[in-house]
Amino acid sequence: MTATYGSTITGLGAYRPHRVVTNADVVRETDVTEDWIEERTGIRTRHSAGPEETVPAMSAEAGGKALAMASVDPSEVDLVILATATKRDRIPGGAPEVASRIGIPACGAFDLNAACAGFAYSVAMASNAVRLGEARNVLVVGAEHLTAYIDPDDPATYVIFGDGAGAAVVSRSSGNDIGPVVWGSDGGRAKILGTKWADDGREYASMNGPLVYRWSTKNVPPVAREACVRAGVDIADIDWFVPHQANLRIIEQLSEILGIPDEKVARDVVDTGNTSAASVPLALSRLHESGRTKPGDTVLLLGFGAGLAYASQVIKMP
């Protein structure tokens, strides 16, 4: 089978829960200080979902905004992909509910769990479906409810994670505005970032921060470089760099290694925290909403995290 169409991102949308959690709020639940949090993570605030702000509910809000920006009617969506690792009910998947909430009739719908790399994985799959003529428009959503998995006795995870959803519409195009994906995994070291079961019967996020930092800053930059090569773009010509918003220190180190100037780097993590699969689309949406981007800007996306899974591609802004 050969590609028949091009693919492009035509719309973006975001949803951040109403409750904003400051570092001052966090320190009341832990034994760390506000300075400790900001020095190690760069995070100042994050959002925490309420009982009604479920993964499907947040996804539908973000997805509806993305469709509106794209001027795509729900009836024109053929596939919904929901990237998430934190939907509490494993069965059924959340994507069919997202489609139903938005009013998308009888579309294909499935969940994808590549954790923090989930959005990049999903964009690649959506692009392939569009290019092969299997779908006209694909709604891709990255959404997480990570605050349901944080333990106040574990500051390494309690202070960084937040909730939210970001979405993109991938549509048919005459050009190829979504570059080839570079993806992979390192399952032999998967246990440095995942979950654990506590004595109280709850499942909590678990992370070896120093090992995650060393692994990501050593192994992820070559992936980003290769994505630029495959897209036929010099990394110096990238207009924006939108990596997974793990923490500010990792983002700054990756940017320095890749030689990307500070003014071209998304830093949504400062106000939104680490939202895993939602982090890249949330940061992408915020860049668009800020008015700092223009249609056709070249953006390097880079997702990496639990698994250890990673993925990168070059796209153009809608």
Rank of each mutant, 00 (worst) to 15 (best):
E97R: 11
D111C: 12
A148Q: 15
V141A: 09
A109V: 09
G108C: 06
L132S: 14
E97Y: 00
T86D: 03
E97K: 10
V138P: 01
G118Y: 02
V80H: 02
D78C: 04
D78V: 02
T157A: 14
P74Y: 07
A99N: 04
Y149D: 09
G93V: 06
A95E: 05
G103L: 09
R136C: 02
A115G: 07
A85F: 04
P74S: 13
E134W: 02
A148E: 15
N113M: 10
A83S: 14
V141I: 15
A85C: 15
H145Y: 07
R90M: 13
F110Y: 15
D89Y: 04
V123C: 02
E144K: 08
D151L: 13
E144Y: 03
R131V: 03
P105T: 06
S100I: 00
L139Q: 10
P155R: 08
T86A: 05
E76R: 12
T84Q: 06
A135T: 04
A106I: 02
I102R: 06
I81P: 05
S100A: 15
C116A: 14
R88L: 11
T147D: 11
S75D: 14
L82S: 08
G118C: 09
L79F: 02
I102W: 00
R88P: 00
L112K: 09
L139N: 11
V123G: 00
A106Y: 02
T84L: 04
T157H: 08
G133H: 05
H145W: 05
V98F: 01
A114P: 03
P155H: 06
A117P: 09
C116T: 09
A156G: 08
N128D: 13
A120Q: 09
A114W: 00
M125F: 01
D78S: 09
I91S: 13
Y149A: 14
T86F: 01
R88T: 13
R101N: 09
P155M: 06
R90L: 14
S127D: 09
F110N: 13
D154E: 15
T147Q: 12
N137A: 10
T157I: 11
G108D: 05
A124R: 02
G103V: 10
N113E: 11
P92M: 10
A95T: 10
A109F: 02
A129Y: 00
S127V: 02
T147E: 10
A114K: 08
A99Q: 02
I104R: 07
P74I: 10
P155K: 08
A106N: 14
G142C: 06
V98W: 00
T157F: 04
S122Y: 01
V77N: 04
I91N: 10
K87W: 00
T157M: 11
A129L: 03
G108E: 03
D111P: 10
V80N: 03
N137K: 08
L82Y: 01
G142E: 03
E134T: 05
V98S: 06
V77A: 07
T147H: 10
Y149Q: 11
D78G: 15
A85P: 01
V141Y: 01
V80R: 03
D153N: 15
P96I: 08
N137T: 07
D111A: 13
D153H: 14
G133Y: 03
T84N: 11
F119E: 05
E97G: 00
